[in-house]
Nucleic acid binder design. Structure first.
Lengths: 120, 120
DNA sequence: TAAATATATGAATAAATGTTCATATATAAG
DNA sequence: CTTATATATGAACATTTATTCATATATTTA
C-alpha cells in the first residue's frame, strides 16, 4: 500500500495507468531538450524577422542589417544561432556571406504558428 | 544620390528591390511579437513535457506534477502560460482542475519540430 | 604589402524567465 | 463552520539571453 503523500486526487488507478502511458510515449530527455532548444530559436522577434526576409530571398548580412534596421553585430549574433540550429545556411561570395533557409520545416512551423494566433 | 554610409555591399539596386519585397511581405510588428511569444511557450522543456502528457490524456494538475516529478507550484505556473497562449484549456471537476489540449496546432508544431531535429 | 570592406565573436550589461517558498482561493468533507 | 485538499499566484532569487562595444578574421583592391 502506498503512503498518503504519494497519492494524489484520490485516483490511484488512473494515476498508475497514466504513468505507464507517459513512460511509453514521452521522448528521451535529450530529445525534449533539443525540441525546447529549437523552439527557443523561434521565440525571438529579431530571428523571426530574419526568417521572414529569407523567405523571400537569399540575402547577405549587411543587407539584413539594413533592411531590419539593426547593427551588423546584432544580426551576426542571431545568424549564428539560426545556423547552429540548422534553420539557415550560408555561402560566401567575395567579401559577403549570403544566407538562405536550410529547409522547409521553417516555413511549416511558422505557418502553423501564424494560424494558431489568428484563430484567437 | 544616397550617402555612402547608407549603402551596403555595393549592390544598390538589389537592396532597393529587397526593401520593397520585405515591406510587402513582412507581417505587422504586433504579429511578429505574438509569433515570437507563442514560440517562446514551446521553448521550455517543462512545458513541452506537459504537452506530451496532454497528448495522451486529460490530466489534473496534481497528476501532472507527480508524473513529471515537479512541484505543484511549478506546474501551475507553467500551465498558466500555456493557458494564456491558448495551447491548453481547463475544466473543473470538484476540487481538481483537468487540463487538455486546446487545439491541434500544438501537435503539428511539435511534430514539425521533431522532424527537423531528427534530420540532423 | 597596406588599406578598405564584410562578417564574426568575446565580454559586459540589461532584461526576461523558471523555480521555490509562502500564502491565497475554492471546493468538499466532517 | 471548521478542516482538509487541489490549485493559483505574488515575491525573490538564480539563470538565461539579446544587444552593444571593441576587436578579430577574411577577402578584395590599390
Amino acid at each position: 500500500m502506498q503512503k498518503k503523500e504519494e497519492m494524489c486526487c484520490e485516483a490511484l488507478e488512473i494515476h498508475e495507468e497514466l504513468l505507464k502511458i507517459v513512460d511509453d510515449t514521452m521522448p528521451e530527455e535529450t530529445e525534449l531538450y533539443d525540441l525546447a532548444e529549437l523552439f527557443k530559436v523561434f521565440g525571438d522577434s529579431t530571428r523571426i524577422r530574419i526568417l521572414f526576409v529569407l523567405f523571400e530571398a537569399e540575402v547577405c548580412v549587411c543587407d539584413l542589417a539594413q533592411v531590419l534596421n539593426m547593427t551588423q553585430s546584432a544580426i551576426s549574433h542571431q545568424l549564428k544561432i539560426l545556423r547552429q540550429n540548422r534553420l539557415v545556411k550560408s555561402r560566401r561570395e567575395g567579401k559577403s556571406i549570403f544566407y538562405s533557409l536550410a529547409d522547409d520545416h521553417v516555413r511549416t512551423i511558422i505557418a502553423q504558428g501564424r494560424e494558431h494566433i489568428r484563430e484567437d
